[in-house]
Amino acid sequence: MTRMSFRQLTAADRLLAGIERAMEAVGGQPEAQRPSPGHQHADTKLAADARRHAAGLMRINHTGEVCAQALYLGQAMMARDADTHRHLLHAADEETDHLAWCSDRLKELDSRPSLLNPLWYAGSFAIGAAAAAVGDPVSLGFVVETERQVEAHLDEHLRSLPAEDDRSRAVLRQMQADEARHAREAQVRGGVDLPMPIPGLMRLASKVMKGVAYRL
Rank of each mutant, 00 (worst) to 15 (best):
R159D: 15
H41F: 13
R80I: 00
E20P: 09
D93Q: 12
F125C: 01
G28I: 06
D97G: 02
M77Y: 09
G200A: 15
H182R: 08
R203D: 11
R173Q: 15
M196F: 01
L201F: 08
V208R: 01
L216G: 04
G74S: 02
G64N: 09
S103D: 00
S139Q: 14
H157S: 04
L204G: 15
R159Y: 04
H98Y: 02
G64L: 11
N61L: 08
E147Y: 03
L46N: 06
M196H: 08
M77I: 10
D165Q: 03
K210T: 08
T146E: 05
H90R: 08
R112N: 06
P30V: 03
V208A: 11
L109D: 11
D104N: 07
A25S: 11
K45E: 12
F6V: 00
A91L: 12
A177K: 07
R181G: 00
L89C: 10
C67I: 05
L106N: 02
R21Y: 04
D165C: 03
V134Y: 15
A54R: 06
E164M: 05
Y72L: 14
M4G: 05
R86V: 03
G200E: 12
A79D: 03
A47D: 13
Y214E: 08
A183H: 04
E185R: 14
A70S: 04
H39N: 14
V144P: 12
R34E: 14
E185Q: 14
S103H: 00
A32M: 03
L99Q: 02
F6H: 05
G135D: 09
H98K: 07
L161C: 04
L73T: 02
P113V: 03
S36Y: 06
P35G: 10
R7T: 14
A130P: 00
P118M: 07
C102D: 12
L88S: 11
A32S: 08
A126C: 11
C102R: 05
G128V: 04
T44K: 07
V208L: 04
I127Y: 04
K45D: 08
D136S: 13
S206D: 11
V134D: 00
A133Q: 06
L116K: 10
R80F: 03
G128H: 01
V171P: 03
R34I: 02
A32L: 08
I60F: 00
V171W: 00
Q176S: 02
G38L: 10
V208H: 02
A122W: 04
G123M: 07
L88D: 13
A70Q: 07
D83R: 15
F6T: 01
D165K: 02
M78I: 01
A48E: 15
L88K: 12
L119R: 05
G135H: 14
P137Q: 10
L216I: 15
R189A: 14
Q8I: 00
S124G: 06
L194Q: 10
G190Q: 09
L161I: 12
E65A: 07
E108I: 03
A11F: 05
P197Y: 01
D43A: 12
P30H: 04
F142K: 15
A25K: 00
R52V: 11
S36C: 14
L161H: 10
V143Y: 07
T96A: 12
A17N: 01
L99H: 06
A79N: 08
H98F: 03
Q69E: 07
Q149H: 08
G123P: 02
C102A: 15
D81S: 09
A170N: 08
